[in-house]
C-alpha cells in the first residue's frame, strides 16, 4: 500500500459538505412541495447555500492535491 494521507483527509472532509448539500436540497424540495408558489423565492437561497457548501468541498479537494 502506498499513497498519501491527504486523500484520506479529503475523504473525511467531504462528508460535511455532502451532508450539507443533502440537507439543503431536502429542505428546498419539501419547501416547494408544501408551497409550490414559494419556488422562485426558495430557489436562489437553495442554490446559494449549495454554492457555499460546495465551495468548502472543492477547497478541500484543491488543498488535498496542493499541500
Amino acid at each position: 500500500m502506498k499513497g498519501t494521507l491527504n486523500l484520506v483527509g479529503y475523504g473525511l472532509s467531504a462528508i460535511g459538505p455532502a451532508i450539507a448539500t443533502g440537507m439543503i436540497f431536502a429542505a428546498y424540495i419539501s419547501g416547494v412541495a408544501r408551497q409550490p408558489e414559494a419556488r422562485s423565492v426558495l430557489q436562489p437561497i437553495a442554490f446559494l447555500g449549495f454554492a457555499l457548501a460546495e465551495a468548502l468541498a472543492l477547497f478541500g479537494l484543491v488543498l488535498a492535491f496542493v499541500l
Binding site: Q43, P44, L48, A51, L52, A55
Partner: peptide
C-alpha cells in the same frame, strides 16, 4: 472562492 461565490450570487441569487 470569494470571487466565484460572488459570481454565483450575481448569476443565481
Amino acid at each position: 472562492m470569494g470571487a466565484s461565490i460572488y459570481l454565483v450570487w450575481l448569476r443565481f441569487g
